[in-house]
Structures are given as C-alpha cells and as structure tokens.
C-alpha cells in the first residue's frame, strides 16, 4: 500500500520532520504501507540520510521513501494513495475526501488564525476524517481504521446553480 504526506504550497517543518521520523515510518510499515511519498513544499528537513535523485530525494538504503518539494499534480498522487496525511488546508481536504481516500489532517498550531483547527474538528465530528497533532501522528496512524470513516458526500453543483438562476430571474 501507498501513503502520501503533503503540506501543499505551505511550509510545515514539524509535520515533515515527524513524517520522516522512525516512529512514523515504523508504524506506517507495520500497517502495510510500504511506499511512502512526502511532498514537503518549502519545509526544512534533515537531508543527510537522503540522496538527491532528479527532482526528489530518496532515503539511503530504502528506495520506497521519497521526498518531493512539489509535484506536478497532487490529484494524481491522491489517486494512487491508500492513505493521505496532510496539513488541514481546506482545498486539500476537499480534494482528498472527494476521492474517498482515508485522510489524517494535522492542523498547523503555529498559524495565527485557528480556522484550520475548526474545519478539522467539524469534519472529525461528522466522521469524514481523523485529526492529529504532530506529536500524536504515530498513534493516530496506528489507531486508524479506514472502514470506520464515513464517506464524504459527492459534489452537488445544482445547489449554487439554482440559487444563481433564481437570483438572476431564470425561472
């Protein structure tokens, strides 16, 4: 199975470093996620144990762990993934949940505005995803049961279409 970690276009050092730590890699492997791809954006991480390989870094002695700054298409990565671990950006959340992929989000506590946290909690309460802290990530992965997540409802484009048609007099 395939786990994908993403921070989008932001910078989230602690999440990237935690995702590449032995405690997270070990628990992912024990749950059967053999391939681990991390999209780290502008985050800093310790590159010593990694080898540059074209556009990405590969862990020395373990080619199934890749780190990318940016990926051409995140949609493609979500599609391939069996688990997505992400910052709590609303765009990423929508994209991943619409593909019906298991998702663990880690709200960035250092951001001034706490609305990421609010969105994550609201969706946890509805059962669509799991939220974790950076520190609690290994435990969140260990406890995750993808079948317990409630599928996210599909996009209903007609809601806004009806509102606008009504507003503009298209009966």
């Amino acid at each position: 199975m395939h786990a994908f970690v993403t921070v989008g276009s932001t910078r989230f050092d602690t999440l990237v470093q935690r995702a590449l730590s032995d405690s997270v890699i070990d628990v992912l492997r024990s749950k059967g996620y053999s391939k681990i791809v991390v999209q780290c954006g502008n985050s800093d991480f310790n590159t010593e144990s990694y080898e540059r390989c074209g556009d990405c870094w590969v862990r020395k002695g373990d080619e199934d762990i890749e780190v990318w700054r940016f990926k051409e298409s995140l949609q493609e990565e979500y599609k391939q993934a069996d688990l997505v671990i992400s910052h709590a950006g609303s765009g990423t959340i929508l994209d991943v949940l619409r593909m019906r992929k298991p998702l663990i989000v880690i709200p960035n506590e250092t951001l001034l505005d706490n609305h990421q946290q609010e969105l994550a909690s609201a969706l946890v309460n509805l059962g669509h995803l799991k939220a974790s802290t950076v520190l609690g990530l290994p435990e969140a992965i260990r406890r995750l049961d993808p079948s317990s997540l409630i599928p996210f409802p599909p996009f209903v484009g007609s809601r806004f279409k009806e509102m606008l048609d009504d507003e503009m007099g298209f009966a």
């Binding site: 609303s90 609305h115 990421q116 609010e118 969105l119 609201a122 806004f160 606008l164 507003e167 503009m168």
Partner: peptide, 16 residues
C-alpha cells in the same frame, strides 16, 4: 452588478 458573496468552506465557526 448584483453581488453574491459565498463564504469559504474553510469557515466553520466565524466569518472571514
């Protein structure tokens, strides 16, 4: 133009 404002999906408990 008529103005239609749609608050972001990210806003759960407070307006932007």
């Amino acid at each position: 133009p008529r103005l239609i404002y749609v608050e972001s999906f990210a806003r759960v408990g407070s307006l932007s």
